[in-house]
Computed example of a mutant assay.
Amino acid sequence: MELNLRYDMNSPPFGAPHPALYRAAIEQAAWADRQGFDQVFLAEHHGAEHGYCPSSMVLAGAVFGATKDILVHLSALVVTLHDPLRLAEDLAVLDNISNGRIVFTAGMGYRPHEFEMFGRDITKRLSIMNNTMETLAKAWTGEPFEYDGRTVRVTPKPVRPGGPKVYMGGSTDKSAIRAAKAGYQYFPGHPDLFEIYKAEREKAGFPPPEQLLKPGPSFLYVSDDPDRDWPLLAPHIAYATNTYAEWAKERGTGETRYAEATSLDALRAMPNIKVVTPDECYALIKGLGPDSQVTFHALLGGLDPELSWKSLRLFGEKVHPRLVADGLVRAPRG
C-alpha cells in the first residue's frame, strides 16, 4: 500500500497565506519522509485566481532539500506549456539533486487561458506534446541531437538511464489510447479509463502495465472529534471541490472525482470526502487492502497548516503504527 501527500497550493481569500502553505508543505514532506511515506504529489496550473502552484519543479527542489527517500511526483506537469529544452534541463537537474527520486505525469493541459498566457495554440497541443516528449527522450541521452534545425545538447545526464520515470496523464478515452499505443505507463484522471488503456496496450503488443492502485478518498482528515472539525474544514473542501468541478467543464469531455457541493450536508455525503476518527481511519484504510493508494491532500483549499498538522500527527500516532503492525505500510525510517 502506498501512503502519499498531495499539494496544489490553491488558497481562497479566507485560506492560509501562501508563504505559510509552502513552508508547511516542505515541513510536512520531511515528516512524511521520516514516517516512511512513498510519494509527494505536486500539481501545476498557471494564472489561477487564487495562487495555484505554477512552478511544481521549484517546489520539488525544496522538498528534495528537506528529504532523503520519498519520491516527488509532478502530477500533472503540463509539458505543453514549457520550452522542451529547458524542461529537459530542469528535470535532469532535479533527477541529480534527488538521486533519481523525481517522477512526473505528463499532462497535455486543458485550460484555454493558460495556452493564451504562454502564446501557445491550444488546438495544436497534441503535436506540441508529442514533440516535447520526443525531445526529452533525445535530450536525456546526454548526446548532441538535432532540434529545430540546429545541434543541441542537454547536460547533465539524468541519474536514471533514459531520464526520470514518466507517466502519461489524462481524463479522456483518447488519452488512455494514446498512452497505450506509445507504450507509456498511464495515470488516469478516473480509474475507469485504465481498463481502456490496458486493452489498447495489449493490442499494441506491449507487456502488461504497472497495476493501477485502488485510490483512497480524495480528501482524508483524521480527527478526535469529526463533528467539531467538519465546520472548520467544510469551507476549504467546498472551495477546492467546486473549483475542480468548474475547471473540469473546460475540458468538454472526461471525468474527475470532484463534484460541486453547496452545503455541509452535501460535502459529508460525498463518498470520496472523509473526516474520520483514528479507529474509523484504520478501518477504512485496512478495508482498501494491499495494492491501494492513500493520499492526504493535507492543505486542500488553503487549510490552516495547524489544522492540517493535527490530522497528520493524529494519523502518525494512532493509525500508522497499526498499519505497520499489519504489514500494510512501511515502518518509519530510522
Rank of each mutant, 00 (worst) to 15 (best):
P278R: 00
A261K: 11
G289T: 06
L284F: 12
L312W: 04
P321I: 08
C281D: 02
Y258H: 13
A259R: 14
V294I: 15
T262C: 01
F315P: 07
T262Q: 12
R268Y: 11
K318C: 00
L314V: 04
S308D: 07
H297A: 12
L314I: 02
E306H: 13
L307N: 05
G289I: 05
K310C: 05
I285C: 06
E260D: 07
W309P: 00
D279F: 01
D291V: 00
T295G: 01
F315R: 05
A266K: 14
A261I: 12
T295Q: 12
G287Y: 04
R333D: 09
L264R: 12
I285G: 03
E260T: 14
P332V: 08
K318V: 01
L300Q: 13
T295Y: 03
V276S: 04
L323V: 10
A298C: 07
A331H: 08
G334N: 10
I273V: 15
V319H: 08
R313M: 08
Y282W: 13
V329D: 04
A298T: 14
V324H: 00
T277K: 07
A261S: 14
D265N: 14
H320K: 10
G289L: 06
L328A: 08
P271G: 13
L267M: 06
C281Q: 03
S311M: 11
W309Y: 10
V324I: 08
S311K: 08
P305E: 09
P271S: 14
H297R: 09
A298L: 11
S292A: 13
K318T: 00
A283R: 15
V276G: 01
P332A: 05
S292C: 02
V294N: 02
K310S: 14
V324K: 04
G316W: 02
G287S: 07
R313D: 15
G301R: 07
P278Y: 02
A259H: 12
P332E: 10
N272G: 06
K310T: 11
G327W: 02
R330F: 06
N272Y: 10
L300P: 01
I273Q: 01
V324R: 05
E280W: 06
G316I: 02
A259E: 14
L300V: 15
G334S: 07
L328D: 10
V324L: 07
W309G: 06
L323K: 10
S311R: 10
P332M: 09
K286A: 13
V275F: 03
A269W: 09
E260R: 14
I285N: 06
G327K: 03
I273W: 02
S292L: 01
L312K: 05
A259I: 12
R268P: 11
A331K: 14
R322V: 04
L312N: 06
P271T: 11
E280N: 04
L307F: 09
R313W: 08
Q293L: 11
L288K: 02
Y258I: 05
A269R: 13
E260M: 12
G316F: 01
H297F: 15
V275K: 02
P290M: 00
G301C: 10
G289K: 07
T262P: 00
Q293M: 12
